[in-house]
């Protein structure tokens, strides 16, 4: 299970900046994007438990959920595979003359794959309405950034494709939101793709089984102080949008929703064995 501890601001920030009919091809730490697109805790937990009521009906697990009606593309494990796909979605918008935008991204590790580069290049050549991001959390599983690439800022990769690359504080939800808003506006205006590097830190292991002993303690201590949720609360507080009691109340409400979702998921039926045979081929294709 991939979590987004310490990285919550990214998906929340960019997904909030999009219009309802824009499309997201989220990364595997972007749970916030699913929630903003209306995936309920019940559906999500049913997915994780392999239940028939999950978005993939038990055919896939984890964060691999999608729904074209809600403008969310299901994640493919093969990192960066969805970047060319997102480019093609933007191409469809361009061909049909729609003012819609696609938002997609991958981790620092994922930016090493050819598909990342092929997608960025194609999108830039055709000035497609797509925004790419990298959640630079400094590690790809156990591999630190210095063994992943010979550059300090992933944003530098954008130069090779003739598109702007911007470095953004990934732990500041307002900064993520504002940078995304600018990039989205640029894409919508027909000026082409932008690449956003959200600098952040993965606070848990790669996946929950991983104690991540390879990450220096001091580094985690340093980033703990920059916790994005704390930061957001402070900001809202300063702006007069809420005091501690208000955040506490939200916390309680969310807890209840998740508990209700868990109950729904646990009580939902598992698929029957023979359902494995269903859905290999489509009978029809829609328009989105």
């Amino acid at each position: 299970m991939y979590t987004s501890y310490g990285m919550e601001a990214i998906a929340i920030g960019y997904a909030s900046a999009l219009e309802r009919d824009d499309v997201i091809a989220p990364f595997h730490r972007d749970m916030g994007a699913f929630l903003i697109r209306g995936f309920t805790p019940g559906e999500i937990l049913a997915q994780y438990l392999g239940k028939r009521t999950g978005p993939s009906k038990g055919k896939d697990g984890n964060v691999h959920m999608g729904d074209l009606n809600r403008g969310v593309i299901s994640f493919v494990s093969h990192l960066a595979d969805n970047l060319p796909v997102a480019t093609g979605i933007a191409l469809a918008f361009k061909i049909r003359g729609e003012r819609r935008v696609t938002f997609t991204g991958t981790g620092d590790g994922g930016t090493s794959r050819g598909d990342f580069h092929e997608a960025m290049n194609f999108a830039a050549v055709r000035k497609l309405p797509v925004v790419f991001f990298c959640n630079n959390n400094q590690y790809a599983y156990s591999t630190p950034q210095r063994l992943q690439m010979a550059i300090h800022d992933v944003a530098d990769r954008a130069k090779a494709y003739g598109m702007p690359g911007e470095i953004v504080d990934g732990n500041d939800v307002a900064a993520v939101y504002l940078a995304s808003t600018r990039a989205i506006a640029r894409a919508r205006a027909g000026e082409g793709p932008t690449f956003l590097e959200f600098k952040t830190m993965r606070m848990h292991g790669h996946s929950e089984h991983d104690p991540a002993k390879y990450v220096p303690r001091e580094l985690l201590e340093e980033w703990k102080k920059k916790d994005p949720i704390l930061k957001a609360e402070q900001l809202l507080n300063q702006l007069g949008y809420g005091a501690d009691a208000y955040f506490h109340e939200i916390g309680e409400r969310v807890k209840k929703e998740v508990e209700a979702g868990l109950e729904f998921a646990e009580q939902s039926p598992l698929p029957e064995g023979p359902e494995v045979l269903e859905g290999v081929f489509a009978e029809e294709a829609g328009s989105y």
């Binding site: 970047l83 060319p84 796909v85 480019t87 093609g88 979605i89 191409l91 290049n121």
Partner: peptide
């Protein structure tokens, strides 16, 4: 890989 992926994306949209 890039343009086949792009074709997939365009196909998903209809």
């Amino acid at each position: 890989s890039g343009f086949v992926g792009a074709a997939i994306g365009a196909a998903l949209m209809g």
